[in-house]
């Protein structure tokens, strides 16, 4: 088992004819993902390496049985693409797009409520379930099938952690990049909940960063609802206040959202916090060997 992405997932790539979309669709296929369709309005009837392309997401659902979507469209079109997937009944929507205005995401989240569909991202590297497939652009070679769940707000730092685990012989059940924006489809808690319920996952590695309160909410969940061990790291211990550190959501505002506060919340919740990101792998090993 795994979370979100499994053997039943049939993926449609929205924006498949763009340079990002086509490149990552091919990478996903090389990784073994079931990419069953692509969507680009106006390009319906063509194909990418034999993957049929449609004008509308609903066509990909009805004709190819698509139930998961990966979105690679520019920021000004991405909220519409998410809503289209939602309306077509897609249950897992993963949006890689960076730069969507926060207020657009506020509206998208209201639309998602109560639908039973799950949005990952935006501004994220996607999801990978080793042995099954991926949606997004995590590099193919870093993964190994196993029992550690990985959740993170960043991209390359997540690859570092996954790679570190793989090099130590520790595989992953699923790795999820939730995205670096202030409002994301699925904050930490939603994913922790899934890992807690997943029989395959024995431990969760979580990588947070400055800004917002998703880490504090995760702490609350871990403290009250989580039985599995959690190892955590917070990036931005040296970040100055009031400055946006690359990610739209990574900003200390009004003295709130500092790494120190978040690390304290995690420690109080029983999360195994490492101060040095290079120690994440070692910490995971030591807990799994206990």
């Amino acid at each position: 088992m795994s979370i979100l992405l499994n053997e039943q997932s049939r993926i449609v790539i929205q924006g498949i004819t763009g340079s990002e979309g086509s490149f990552h669709a091919r990478e996903a296929v090389a990784f073994g993902s079931k990419v069953v369709a692509g969507v680009t309005p106006g390009k319906g009837g063509t194909d990418l390496d034999g993957i049929p392309i449609y004008n509308r997401v609903i066509d990909a659902v009805e004709k190819e049985g698509a139930n998961a979507s990966g979105i690679y469209v520019p920021a000004s079109f991405a909220p519409d693409a998410i809503l289209e997937a939602l309306e077509a009944g897609i249950k897992l929507i993963v949006c890689m797009t960076e730069g969507i205005p926060a207020l657009e995401m506020v509206k998208v989240k209201k639309a998602l409520k109560g639908t039973g569909s799950c949005l990952i991202g935006p501004n994220c590297p996607g999801i990978t379930t080793p042995g099954v497939g991926k949606i997004g652009f995590m590099p193919n070679f870093i993964h190994k099938k196993g029992n550690v769940g990985v959740i993170s707000r960043s991209g390359t730092l997540t690859y570092e952690v996954i790679n570190m685990l793989t090099n130590l012989g520790i595989g992953q059940s699923t790795s999820v990049g939730i995205g670096g924006d202030p409002i994301v489809g699925s904050p930490f808690v939603d994913i922790l909940e899934l890992f807690e319920a997943d029989p395959e996952t024995r431990l969760v590695a979580i990588i947070g960063e400055i800004g917002g309160n998703a880490e504090e909410e995760a702490a609350e969940f871990v403290k009250n609802k989580m039985s599995k061990p959690v190892v955590g790291f917070i990036a931005g211990q040296t970040a100055p206040p009031g400055k946006r550190m690359g990610h739209a959501g990574a900003i200390i505002s009004g003295g709130k959202g500092t790494a120190a506060e978040k690390m304290k919340a995690w420690e109080d919740a029983g999360i195994n916090v490492v101060v040095n990101p290079a120690d994440i792998g070692k910490k995971v090993v030591s807990i799994l060997n206990k």
Partner: peptide, 17 residues
């Protein structure tokens, strides 16, 4: 000089450590 915002923050933290 780093690629990725999360890794760039982590790199700053590592230098401090």
């Amino acid at each position: 000089m780093v690629n990725g915002a999360g890794l760039a923050m982590a790199t700053m933290d590592l230098i401090k450590l």
